[in-house]
Design a protein around this nucleic acid. Sequence first.
RNA 1: CGGGAUGUAGCGCAGCUUGGUAGCGCACUUCGUUCGGGACGAAGGGGCCGCAGGUUCGAAUCCUGUCAUCCCGACCA
Length: 609
Amino acid sequence: MRVSRLMLVTLREDPAEAEIASHKLLLRAGYIRRLAPGIYAYLPLMWRVLRKVAQVVREEMDAAGALEALLPQLQPADLWRRSGRWAGYTAGEGIMFHLEDRQGRQLGLGPTHEEVVTVLGADLLRSYRQLPVNLYQIQTKFRDEIRPRFGLMRGREFIMKDAYSFHADEACLAQTYAAMDRAYRRIFARCGLRAVAVEADSGAIGGSASQEFMVTAEAGEDLILTSPDGRYAANQERAESLPPDPVLLPAGPRSGGAGEPLATPGETTVEQLCAGHGLDPSQVVKVLLLLARFEDGAPQPLLVALRGDQQLNEVKLSNAVTARLGAQHGALLELAAITAELLAAQGLDPLPFGYFGPQLEDRLLAGSRGWARTFLRLVDHTAADLTAFVCGANRIDQHLVGASWQGLNLSPDVVDLRAAQPGDRCCHDPAQRLEATRGIEVGHIFQLGRKYSTAMEACFTSEAGSSEPFWMGCYGIGVSRLAQAAVEQHHDADGIRWPLAIAPFEVLVVPANAADPVQADLAEHLSAQLEEAGVDVLLDDRPERAGVKFKDGDLLGIPWRVVVGRGAAEGRVELVQRGGEGSRDLQAHGLLDHLLPRIRRQRRGLLEE
RNA sequence: CGGGAUGUAGCGCAGCUUGGUAGCGCACUUCGUUCGGGACGAAGGGGCCGCAGGUUCGAAUCCUGUCAUCCCGACCA
């Protein structure tokens, strides 16, 4: 390929629309163009990268025994109603683009394919003898993201590899899940990415075990917590840790009972309360009032208690709420703080904001127009473990000191709701402390269990002759996101430094002075020779000055550059590695022998021998 | 959806405070000189100043509304 024929437009300045390095570089180097928020054109260079990533994915999936297919992107609403996800995915903050056809039938544009694949499985897989099966595709996904961001990092249209496996039993699912884990590690290594596997929340996809693969990068959207010994790594929304020990409350006259009143005028925050009375935040039980909205059923008021020095992890809370009420009310759509306005809209009396205690009574909800009439009460371990604490008295300007759960006549529903923090002691070894890293989620594998197969009545005949729902797993890789994550991890002040395995071209041949026929001829000859040897070569045949071509070459990030310059007449060329040190003079006739073994090695990325 | 910012040539920006009919750099076209790290000179093409309404003799500039984009939070590969 020749640069003059590549439709290449590079920009000297950073486009204003881009914030992070990889996004700026992909725009500047002419890899992508934005059409609308979260919607990008992959220009020829980008498409070459994406095809290379896809090919690595394909090879590893095939090697792991998966079957490639291509499933419909237009998906009937009925299918999604059967799995119970239509409302959750289209209403409110749902992310599915949906439309009607000329007959008025509702359709969704596939954000994921569990429904489609489950009915296919049910249709085709009748017997345990056909199992296990692992079906995958590499395809554009559509998601109406609440906030598209950072170019290809979070697009509304993006390329994803998604795979779905079917099994007769849980052990078989676990085997395929482990095989996918291995395949994923190989994929990221082959693509030249440093990725870490972390425990993850299953989110809207559901199911039991799930693991994310994170490309470590400062610009990552996720916070990862890891132990120094490498034995623990988790997304912060999932991570567990040991909380700091609380400062014990000095025993008072009624310590451990219902608590002594304490006048705390104007002290509505834990900080103010502690500052005013010489307390430690770990001696306080703080109470948060939230409202959970479901697919159907009345909004549910929540009363959540945590130790004063701890932060709420909303993901854990959502999971706890769903576990308790999801079966009756369907998907949890939203969690929001209860405000004075919301109370007024329900016709309820104002509540003493800033002075809540866990003993807040249900009768305060009795007059509500549409809400459930009792609180769902959840208490984090840190709060439940306190034998005596300070909490709000549920009266303005008053707290209680020395209260206890028994003393308040409460029996807490104890769950883990606290957000683990960097610096916390690890559960597996209290001597280790969690460290924070930022990451870009490029892959996620799930053991779905029988969630979808049960909902959609997708069954097979077991060895014993009974009809049973499939055990299922699903496995995703954000192909386009991975490509940008690679840039985020591999760039410098001059531009991109593609890992060779996914670079659009492996070698860039630059005649320093294209007007010199000797240089031009030799450059042409070397390009042809490399191409003949199966190397992806780009020849910069533009009549530009050498400096321009070098700058563009660095920006584009092609791993090897062959400069055909002053030495051309003597048959000498220069070999430069992008981001490497210095250059090497070679005889042109020896170039292939020198370069080929190196390229072959680099095509394996970070994969160990 | 809430909070913040910005809309002027393909890209990056100035001009707006104090209204007088649009400018700089890059990119593009032509010519000349140059030619190993984004050259120089000359000539040129390209703008409904986001859109609508208002104020005014006159609006990129002032007022009102509206739309769009980007950033921060809830979503996820």
